[in-house]
Simulated assay, not measured.
Amino acid sequence: MEEAYAGRGASAASAKDPAPVVGYVGADVPVELLTAAGLRAFRLTGDPESGSDLGDRYLGRGVDPVARSVLARLLAGAFGDLDRIVVSHDCEASLRLFYALRELGRVEPGAGLPGVYLVDLLHLPHRTTARYNRRRIGEFAARLEAWTGRPLDVAGAMAAHDVRRRLLAAAAELRRAVPARLTGRQFLAVAGAPLPVNEHIPLLERLLAEAGRLDEHAGKRVFLSGSDHDTPHVYEAIESDGHVIVGEDHSFGDLSVTEPIGAASLDALAEHYHRSGPTAHRATAGERAAHAAAAVRRCRADLFIAYSRDGDEAPAWDFPAQRAALDIPSVLLERQEYGRADLAALRKESPCPM
């Protein structure tokens, strides 16, 4: 599984799966429909090591550096051949990326970017929002049928993704064990392996079958809140300092491990994405605080770290309410460089013997 994660983002191509490849950005893309269409879904990620100059040129430096890095990598051809790109409106940076890709396709066709489509789902707690999302899901399903020229296997795809959800939930329990049987970095690899669901399932089954032979991981148990982490860099920095990340609230980690949907219908799928979260960009501070308190108890965490990346300020706004709701020490790492964690600030607030 870690080998699968290590190759993440390098190329979307797969000799094992010759299906057309759709790169996607954002937590609200209904990947079940991509599977139902017989497409290979590949979540696009940034790279803190490669720079973002090309992305900065079109997005400016005020946008979350993950979006700028993804755009730079797309323009550099880092993902190989993509047939389409799908972007969701899960945050402002994703929406800005969509507009940039659409405009680049219009004015610079020589850039070689594939066509881009926006899935615009909302998360307000209203019936009108639910109806809006159902219409957007239906439009996306119709667009996929037009792209592929065949009907979608919605029932088969949703059943397969529900199997993966159950397996991921079981893997998440390994990390919550005391002592943890997976590190945070390892779980990030498990949850985010860039594999089609039919390839991911047997790897998860093998991991769970070998759970009794996994190493135990001691250290101060950390719950990590805030910005998304699309690479393992920050996890590696924190865990190399004597901590073990046993939970988080971003879309590449625990928030991707949801309850099975059950009903194989577009209505059920729309409802699932309507109530997903709560991320820092689409939930209130009170909702985030309540979620943090419950998750910290479930993970039996010793330390709460709120991480806010430079260009992604929303997570820092939630920290006062989160800290007030917790009964464990809490630390805010604010305005962090993409892929980096200020360990000096962390050690100052929470000394951890090495």
Rank of each mutant, 00 (worst) to 15 (best):
E2H: 07
E2R: 09
S14Q: 13
P18A: 08
V21R: 13
G23P: 00
G26Y: 04
V29H: 02
L33G: 00
T35Q: 06
A37F: 01
D47R: 02
E49I: 03
S50P: 03
S52M: 12
D53S: 15
D56V: 07
V63R: 04
D64Y: 12
V66A: 12
A67I: 02
A67M: 14
R68A: 01
L71V: 03
P109M: 03
G112H: 06
L124H: 13
H126W: 10
R127D: 14
R127L: 14
R131C: 08
G138I: 09
A141V: 08
D153W: 00
A155Q: 07
A155D: 09
M158E: 03
A159K: 12
A160H: 04
R164N: 10
R166G: 10
L168Y: 09
A169F: 10
L174P: 13
L174V: 11
L174T: 11
L174D: 10
R175L: 10
A177F: 11
R185D: 06
L188H: 14
A191I: 03
P194S: 04
E199R: 15
L204K: 05
A211H: 09
L214N: 02
H217Y: 11
R221N: 08
D230H: 04
P232M: 00
Y235L: 14
E236K: 01
I238L: 09
G242P: 02
G247T: 11
D249E: 13
H250C: 10
S256K: 15
P260F: 01
H274M: 11
H274R: 15
R275E: 13
T279H: 14
A280T: 09
R282N: 15
G286N: 08
G286W: 05
R288H: 08
A290Q: 12
R300C: 14
D302W: 12
L303A: 10
F304C: 12
F304A: 13
I305S: 05
A306Q: 15
S308D: 06
S308K: 05
D312Q: 08
E313H: 14
W317R: 13
D318R: 04
R323P: 05
R323D: 09
L332Q: 04
R340Q: 14
L343E: 03
R347T: 09
R347L: 06
P353F: 04
P353D: 04
